[in-house]
Each structure stands twice: as C-alpha cells, then as structure tokens.
Design a protein around this nucleic acid. Structure first.
Lengths: 417, 417
DNA sequence: GGCCTAAATCTAGGCTCTGAATCAAATGGT
DNA sequence: ACCATTTGATTCAGAGCCTAGATTTAGGCC
C-alpha cells in the first residue's frame, strides 16, 4: 500500500478529497481499535466500528499488507465459547514499531523503549555532570543512550516509530525553546534531531509528567508540579495539555510575588532546593539547637530535613511547614486560575513529600475557601517523565497512526507521478 | 432532506458509518465556506474544496433543498470578467436563521440579534434592580427581551438558530453553575431553557469577553479580564477557551494571597469596586486633603478617582497606582501560569483604565523579568459580552452547521423507521 | 446570425460500502 | 464416522458517490 501523503485531518479540514478518504477513515478507526485492544476478531471490530463484515475484513487485509496487523492462526483463544467456525483474529504486529521515551534531565538521562501498547521493553540510565557536557555532548549522549536501549535483546531490533524527549525547558508547538539570558534552555533543548530514526518530538519535562498523571485519571483536570531543584508545572485542562505562546505555560514566575520577602528563596526553586536553602539559612542565622547541625552542611538536603522533622526537631518542622505553606499557595493559584481538581507533586522528592502535603492541606482548609484541590504525591517516582514521554508517543500514534510507516515496511515513493 | 441524527464528528469518532458520510462531510465543507464568504460560485467552491464541479453542484442542490443556500439569479456580479456562460452563484439564505447573543448581567441585560455572518441586526437593553428580580424573574426578563429583539423589523421574523447567554457565574461543560453559599451563581444561571426556540447555550460572561477579544487576534494567546464591580478572567490558550472542572477557570480567588493584608479589598472585587473602596477607606482614615472629599461619598466611583488623579490629586494618584500594581500582579500570575502574550481589560471600566494600565506596565518592567505580556484596554466597550456571545454562536454553527435545522425548514421526523 | 468562452450537464467508469445468499470450518450428538 | 448445528467467511448484486471527459448551453461580442 502506498502511503497517502498528508493526514486525514488535513484532508477533511482543508476539504481536499482523495478517492480513498473513506477507506482511510475506516482504516484509522480499526487501527486505533487495534492499538487499544491489542488483538480482536472481525465481529468485535464490526460492533466497535459499525462497519459491515466485508468492509472490516477488507480494511484489515490492507492493514496486514501495510505491516500494521498480522492474522493470528491460533484463533478462538481466551476460552470463549467454542462452537461454530473459528473467527479470524488480527493482532497488532509486535515488530510494527516501538516507542522511545527519553528524560534528558540536567544531569540524569533516562530512556525507556516500549511496544505500541505502552509496555516497557527496555530501559537505560546514565548520569552526566551538567558542567562538563555541552550542547553537542548532550545530544550525543541522548542518541547513544537511545541506541543502546534499542539494541536491547527485548526490543528485537524493532525500529522506533516515535521518540519523545523530555527536556527541562519550555518547548513551544514547534519543539523549540525560547531564548533565555543564561542560554540554559537552549543548552537543554538542542532543537535539532539527534539522528534518531522515526519521528522525534520534544516536550517540556513537567508537561510530560502531567501527561503521565493525566493518563491515570483521564477524566480529571490536573496540574502536575515537577519539583526538586526546580519548580515547573504541567497543566492538563479540559483534557488538553496547555502550552501557551512560547511553551511557557506552567512556569512559576509568579512565585516572585509570594517570595519577594524571602532572602533564601527564588521563584524557580523547587521544594528540594528550598528545604536545603531554608535549613542552611536558619542554621546560620540562629543558634537554635537542631539535629541538623550535626550533619555535613554540604550534604544537607530535603530528606534529612523531613527525617529530622519526623523525629520532632523544631527547626526542621518549621521548615516543613513553610514548604507546605508555599505549596498551598501554589495550589491555590493553580486551582483558582485553572479550576483543576487535582494537584500532583512529582519528581524525585515525591516519595518523601507526605508531611509537606499534609500541612499544605491544613493551610488550604484554614486559609482559603473551598473547593480545595486534592493534593497528592505522584506514585510514579523518577520514571514519571519517561512514562509521560511514552504516553505522549502513544497519543501521537493513536491520533493519526496512518501518518507513520510501520517498521521496515515503508515503501519508497516513486518520484514519478 | 431528512436530517441525519448525530454529528459527523460523532460518527467519525465512534466509527459508526452512514452511507451519506462522505456527502455529509462535503456538505459541511461547502456550508462552512458559505458561512465564511457569504456567496460564491461553483468554480470558487471547487478550488476551495478540491471537489469536482459535479459534486459541488450536487451538494449545493442539497443545501438549497435543505434551506441553507439559495441560488442567486443575478449571477456574474461584482464586475468580474464577463465572458463565457455565467456561473451559478449560491448565497447563504438570509432567512436560514439568526444568532442571538445575550448579556444577562447582574443588573444590566443586553441582547443582540445577528445574521449568520455576524452582522448585528437588532439590539435591546434593559436594566433591573438585582435585589428585586428573582430567578424566574431573570429568566422571564431574558426571554421577553430576546423576543422583543427578534420582533425587530430588521430581523424579519427569521427564527434563531443559536442563542448564547452570558451569565456572571462559572459555567461548566453542561451549562450548569456550581453551588455556592450565597446562591448567587444559581440565581445568575437558572440552568433551564428559558423557552427560547433553537439551541440555547450558556457561558460565563468573562469567557465570552475572551472569545470576543480572541476573535480579533485569533493567533494570539490571550487573557481577558472582565472587571468593574467584580473580577473574572476568560482564558484562551492554544486557541481554546479554558473551562476547568466546574467552569471555574479564570476565577480570581488567588487574589486572597495578594490582598490578605488589605482591609478594604476582597478577592472578587473588580478594579471599579476597588477604586471606590480604597478611596473611601483612605478618606476615612486620614485627613489628607483631596478633591475627592468634595464629592458625595455615596457616588464616589472609579471615573471620579481617575479624573482626580488626572488633575493631580495625590490621594487619587496613589489609588490609581495601587490599582495598577494589583493589575500588574494579576498579569504576572496569568502570564506566567498560562504564557499568554496579551492581557485585555474589558468591561465598563475599560474606557477609563488607560492610566492604570500605564502604571501597571511600569510595575511589570520594574519588578518582573521579561517577557512581559502586552496590557491593553478592550475597545469593545460594554458590548464585549454580547459580541462574545455572538462569536460563540458563530463558532458553534461553523463547527457543525448540519446539526442545526435552518429556519422553518425543519422537517418532522416520521416516528416509523 | 455566427463565433467565442466559460460553465453546466451528461455519460461512463471506478471505488467503496451494504446486505443477502452461499460456502466453510469447527463442535457435539448419535 | 457422520450429520446437524452453529458461527463466521466469501461471493455477488446493487446502490451511492466521486471523477474525468465529452457534449451542450448561456451569454457577450463581432
């Protein structure tokens, strides 16, 4: 099957018609069904699509020829009733393609390869000193890590259809990041294809985290705070990820307003950074006794503060409360501007954030009118960005699968005609 | 033509097929073209749709039979070239239907009737004492005002296809408003069809203002602050109006955070209300001389304050600066959470808001990092909500015109089959 | 009236879908 | 082993819709 150029969406919107428009719509419907369910019999597809048997089988034949589906000989599986002629069953081909999700953090690099259903097949991780790796170095690092993950035996050499790279910088609709003074963003987002085959997309890391959290409760409106050293939010409202003009939706510059009086806190500081800086600041400025004084100040970090607070240390408890207060304020802003019902704290710090969330809830209830957003910690751990990247790849594929060529099956388009 | 139930979108998304799906898609394309251009020749539609002449004419015949289009005898108009057989031209029927936009404010009621191109044909206005009109009273008032406007000779008895009612309350996807303690919202949004024929939709007034402003610069991301006595924002990000869980997106409850220390200001106070309350508060608490003292305190309002400031009154100038500061803070929050590039101040106060905007820009540049959002006053005046309501109606019609029955042509569906 | 041009109309042909009729493959009972 | 039953696949006629090309038509111009 020669791929038809352009997407169905393009065609219906521009109004340009192709003789195969209807066929294409039907193929898309059935392929989406396959992407969701994995395998199916014709009768099931007839019910789901409203098409006649003849049409379903015809379309499936084409999808088989195109490399998307395969017919499974072992029909009548799953212990359904056993009478009558066995149904023909079709299945998404395992070797049609894989998805790659990348978390290209400031110092942590994570890659996961998943099949078209979203099941993770292989993972790779690497750390790099941010000061030592330049723009090309980061690009090479991502490419080599992806290549390694794709070479994993579990991937079986299946080529990637879509690769999504999460970067700690705003990303606009074209995949580019705005200029910033420090050139940090352009360092984080090279903005050029790193030589990975297939479709390569870039997206802000907090946005990917938001997609991962949204996938767990697709009906909810949710803000996902990716925090640790930095603070960024991914916003899913009315079922869509918000980007804004320069991809900067979810930036926390407004924290300037709340933190203007705070010598230790900047607007882009995450809860982890704040815990450390507030603790150091208080220890320096007062002589108040605290178990934190026994620790190496260079290693003083959020987990130590939380542990000390749990042990009853007054100074640490105070810092924990300040963190909760700040989080509550962020929650109020997001909930009132966007009417999100759920706010998820994600990132490395999420595991330990429980007590801070608890205090933030108290602040919400004491100081602000309801309705209050639900404040929860992400359960996806450090994988949240990679998971979100895979989710974005899945969405992209489901949206318009026929725009992509399934693995190895891509046919050269003859220049003539 | 018997109307087909359901929308094309439904069908393509659910996968259910009708034998007329393709025809319907084409009809939709051509009808959208007609809604945008008004009248057109077949050749033009062929270019725009990519369809063959035979198809275009066939579809147009059906649209004529359905009551959407009419063929104009006077073809070859507009002074185009005169050679060859004259083209058949089609035009949107003036009597296919009208749009109704309603601003059902707390005390002001405005109605505009427009044709399908958005040209306003008739308007009506009425004031009502909010304390005297209950829920049924408001509903009746809206209905009678709409009926009056529809009875205007300029409307020529054309029936309304879509009526959009703007209310000062959050409105969720189903047209309902959440419960609130004061029952103010449910008073403002009766939530039941007021007996107006055709499709009746409800939407938050600030959201409608945002649609009106967005229509002027469709490519921009924009927040529209509807202010005066109250403060509400309509947010258009990534080309879409945001609603959130309960339709509460754009609520300004976060102003609690900024105004917590201010005895005179509440979070839902608009710039008009603030100007008055701050002025009264300052006049009471100090003996500072001011021309505002000469005015009747009961009538002291934003325009008087701005006029006094323009005349050099120090107290009034201070209040104007405080207003600008508050506005700047709101702008920072919206710009950083949503990355909107433009913030429009709309509502009755917009005409006089210039000096406040000027100071707000100064504050933005002095206290916050760029990029700064563009701060402008709406030029649509008090009509902004009605305009937005018409815009929403237009969007709805363009989105799926075939879901509506053009004026008077609606055919009863026989119960059989 | 005859010519020119551009559009409408007519005609043939090809896709694609549906639905009915027919065929095929499995099971279970005898 | 054989056959009835059940369920799905296959085939085929028919209809809807689109395109492309040939033909006709409408109006202006000479």
């Amino acid at each position: 099957m020669r791929p038809v150029s352009g997407t169905v969406k393009d065609m219906t919107e521009s109004g340009a018609r192709s003789p195969r428009l209807l066929r294409r719509l039907n193929a898309q419907t059935l392929l989406r069904h396959a992407l969701t369910t994995g395998d199916f019999a014709a009768a099931e597809a007839m019910r789901a699509s409203g098409l006649s048997r003849a049409t379903v089988l015809g379309v499936c034949d084409e999808l088989v020829a195109a490399g998307w589906l395969e017919e499974i000989a072992d029909s009548r599986l799953g212990g359904q009733y056993q009478r009558g002629r066995p149904a023909r069953r079709y299945r998404l081909r395992e070797d049609a393609g894989v998805l790659v999700g990348v978390d290209a953090g400031e110092s942590r690099f994570d890659v996961a390869v998943a099949d078209l259903r979203g099941t993770v097949l292989a993972q790779r991780h690497r750390e790099a000193d941010p000061g030592e790796v330049d723009l090309d170095g980061r690009r090479d690092l991502v490419r080599s890590l992806v290549e390694e993950a794709l070479a994993d035996p579990a991937v079986q050499g299946v080529p990637p259809l879509v690769t999504v790279i999460g970067v700690p910088a705003p990303v606009d609709a074209d995949g580019a990041s705005p200029e910033d003074n420090s050139a940090f963003w352009s360092l984080m987002n090279p903005g050029v294809d790193p030589g990975i085959p297939g479709l390569v997309l870039r997206e802000n890391d907090a946005n990917l985290a938001a997609l991962a959290e949204h996938a767990r409760r697709p009906e909810q409106h949710v803000a996902t705070l990716l925090t640790g050293e930095r603070f960024g939010a991914g916003l899913v409202v009315d079922g869509r990820l918000l980007h804004g003009r320069r991809g900067g939706a979810g930036e926390m510059r407004f924290l300037d307003l709340l933190a203007a009086d705070d010598p230790d806190a900047g607007p882009s500081d995450g809860l982890g950074a704040l815990a450390r800086r507030w603790a150091r600041g208080e220890l320096e400025r007062s002589a108040e006794p605290s178990v934190l004084r026994d620790l190496d100040p260079g290693r003083l970090d959020a987990p130590e503060v939380f542990a000390a607070a749990a042990a009853g240390d007054a100074l640490a408890e105070r810092i924990q409360r300040r963190l909760g207060e700040r989080l509550a304020h962020v929650a109020v802003v997001l909930a009132s501007v966007l009417d999100v019902e759920r706010i998820v704290v994600a990132g490395g710090i999420a595991e330990a954030i429980g007590p801070v969330l608890a205090h933030a809830r108290t602040v919400l209830e004491a100081d602000f009118y309801p309705p209050h957003p639900e404040l929860v910690a992400s359960t996806l751990g450090r994988d949240v960005i990679v998971q979100g990247a895979l989710e974005m790849g899945l969405r992209r594929i489901r949206e318009d699968p026929l725009a992509l060529d399934p693995g190895g099956q891509s046919v050269e388009v003859t220049p003539s005609e």
